[in-house]
């Protein structure tokens, strides 16, 4: 963005020295992921691989391995490029975005008036993923706010998740990708979360697909129904990655595959 002078910010703030923005830990029924946690850390963490395979799957397919050493989880979420992989993951998990700052004020200028008249205590806010992604490159964060971290609900027993992405090559944005998180309760699927990457102006939560999974036994027919519902929920635009029809088809296929994998994981049949 900056290299092609699309974005020309007057100042950049290096947050590396701000404590508490980075890290990964499970506590109080959720996984806390600091906004500045590197994607490589998520990808390589045993904790995510074991307990949060949807997140772990997604982290493996963002950009490329070298980029992931520097790129952050918070950046991928807050940049809200419809092609970014983590927004759909957060929707599927029903994650909570944690922000701090001055939601109603413009970004403070480093040298200008704003910096001197800031209230002493910045406000902390929690924003549900469903309310966070408001448009392409737009989120519910105010200009005076930063994302500090994300809370992902810890999965209960019998849960599984998966991320399925079709990319033209390593490093590419998705042609389409599907994030699914679900759990089994009394032999049927409950609390399914299904969300789609790069087939709309924002990541899309496919509620009808969730409905098709919830209450089902996770058999192929239910998955087919969910897949068709997810394809219907997609709002793709034709581009070099494919036609609208093709992208819907990919959503349909990947929904089936991601759901199959999530179910296998929930049943302990797959890693």
């Amino acid at each position: 963005m900056m290299r092609f002078r699309v974005a020309q910010p007057p100042a950049l703030v290096d947050l590396r020295r701000v404590p508490g923005l980075s890290g990964l830990r499970e506590e109080n029924g959720h996984l806390w992921v600091g906004a500045m946690t590197r994607q490589a850390e998520i990808e390589k963490s045993g904790l995510t691989r074991r307990r949060y395979p949807l997140l772990s799957d997604a982290a493996r397919v963002i950009a490329d391995p070298v980029v992931r050493n520097l790129a952050t989880v918070g950046g991928n979420v807050a940049h809200a490029d419809p092609g970014n992989d983590l927004p759909a993951v957060m929707l599927a998990y029903g994650a909570t975005m944690c922000a701090v700052g001055y939601p109603d004020r413009p970004a403070p200028s480093l040298s200008g008036e704003g910096s001197r008249s800031l209230p002493l205590a910045p406000e902390k806010r929690e924003i549900e993923a469903d309310d966070f992604f408001t448009g392409p490159f737009e989120t519910a964060l105010g200009e005076g706010e930063i994302l500090t971290g994300i809370r992902i609900p810890s999965p209960s027993a019998g849960s599984g998740g998966a991320y399925a992405k079709l990319e033209r090559k390593v490093g590419d944005y998705a042609v389409a990708a599907v994030a699914i998180q679900l759990r089994f309760h009394g032999g049927v699927i409950a609390d399914a979360g299904v969300a789609l990457t790069n087939v709309g102006l924002t990541a899309i939560r496919a509620e009808a697909a969730e409905g098709a999974l919830n209450g089902s036994d996770g058999g192929d027919e239910a998955l087919d129904r969910a897949a068709a519902a997810a394809a219907a929920a997609a709002e793709p635009m034709a581009d070099a990655r494919g036609s609208e029809a093709y992208k819907r088809a990919v959503v349909r296929t990947l929904t089936f595959r991601a759901a199959s994998k999530a179910i296998a994981r929930a049943r302990g049949e797959a890693a």
Binding site: F4, L12, D14, A40, V67
Partner: peptide, 27 residues
């Protein structure tokens, strides 16, 4: 390249590979 794609500029930054065309020296 100019899109952080090719990796020709990869160095180790605190031991980890990083594309040095996309790191500000001040950082």
């Amino acid at each position: 390249c100019d899109t952080t794609s090719c990796g020709a500029c990869t160095v180790l930054l605190n031991g980890k590979p990083a594309k040095s065309c996309t790191v500000l020296a001040v950082a």
